[in-house]
């Protein structure tokens, strides 16, 4: 039932948001695009990391891999092929590293996923310099803004729908079991290794596809900008603030943060990040369940009043 509600909400959101390129200003469109991108990133991150408590800092790596699929394929691969291919490349990368590092837990897992992302960035930087004799790539003749917008919209909605479907499925139950007590889940018949690797790869697919889709908006692609750790941190922050174990929490907080970022980051770059840092600390200390936990607490009180 909840799944049906979520899917209906996705369909309605799609119908409402699809005509935006022909109705709103360029600035509002770019703002919406940014919101949608972070909705997709945060929801897919929470789908795996929120459920399993495996704190992945590899989002920037997946995103960057997707972006480079676009960059390398530019001129030969059509946009409609590059986007899913970017997602697949990221998912394959995630499955490969997941098989190797998903036995590590806690801070070690977080740090190694971050390290692997940096490794990919440095490897691409080095490879481009050595073999392609370039530090970045120019995207000439990108697809129309309307196309990019619709593709990102479709990806964000697909991420939400997938997350809703996963939550309602056996696969989602297995992920939650891993997050709660991995060994217990194993003794009840869950192949935790497979489940974790699959979940990690599925989340990576969306990050990679979004990277591939958005990359064409930048005229110049270089490792430092597409593997920007800020994208990864911002994703984690959004999901945690919203409540990583919920579906609606990350969506709401993605919208709030994207708007704030777009409005404030250019004018007050340092002050904005200082506030962001302080906010993250305060939230972890005083509201570790995210904003969604406030709502849950309120609902609980209503019921028990």
């Amino acid at each position: 039932m909840r799944l049906a509600t979520a899917l209906a909400a996705c369909a309605i959101a799609g119908l409402v948001l699809a005509p935006a390129p022909w109705l709103v200003s360029d600035f509002a469109l770019s703002l919406t695009l940014s919101c949608l991108m972070y909705v997709g990133l945060a929801v897919s991150w929470a789908m795996f990391s929120g459920a399993t408590n495996y704190l992945s800092l590899a989002t920037a790596a997946f995103f960057g891999i997707g972006a480079y699929v676009t960059a390398w394929g530019h001129g030969t691969l059509p946009y409609a092929v590059a986007v899913p291919l970017g997602g697949l490349a990221a998912a394959l990368f995630a499955a490969a590293i997941g098989a190797a590092v998903l036995h590590l837990r806690g801070a070690y897992f977080a740090v190694i996923t971050f390290g692997l992302g940096e490794l990919v960035r440095h490897a691409i930087t080095y490879g481009e310099k050595t073999w392609a004799r370039t530090v970045g790539r120019v995207i000439s003749d990108p697809p129309a803004t309307e196309t990019v917008y619709l593709v990102v919209l479709a990806l964000a909605l697909a991420a939400v729908a997938t997350a809703a479907a996963v939550r309602a499925s056996r696969f989602g139950l297995a992920l939650a079991g891993v997050g709660s007590d991995e060994e217990r889940a194993r003794t009840l018949g869950v192949n935790t290794r497979l489940v974790k690797t699959g979940g990690f790869a599925l989340a990576a697919f969306f990050a990679g596809a979004l990277g591939a889709a958005v990359a064409v908006r930048w005229t110049y692609i270089e490792p430092a900008s597409v593997f920007n750790p800020f994208i990864g941190f911002q994703t984690v922050l959004i999901a945690m603030v919203g409540g990583a174990h919920t579906l609606a929490g990350p969506i709401a907080s993605a919208v709030v943060f994207s708007v704030l970022t777009e409005l404030l980051r250019l004018q007050f770059p340092y002050a904005y990040l200082i506030v962001l840092g302080a906010l993250l600390i305060l939230l972890v200390l005083y509201l570790p369940g995210g904003l969604a936990s406030l709502l849950e607490r309120w609902k609980w009180r209503q019921r028990h009043a």
């Binding site: 060994e183 194993r186 003794t187 009840l188 018949g189 869950v190 192949n191 935790t192």
Partner: peptide, 12 residues
């Protein structure tokens, strides 16, 4: 691994 034992009918 433990999940194989569980699927063969060992519960604990």
């Amino acid at each position: 691994p433990a999940h194989v034992f569980a699927r063969h009918g060992v519960a604990r």
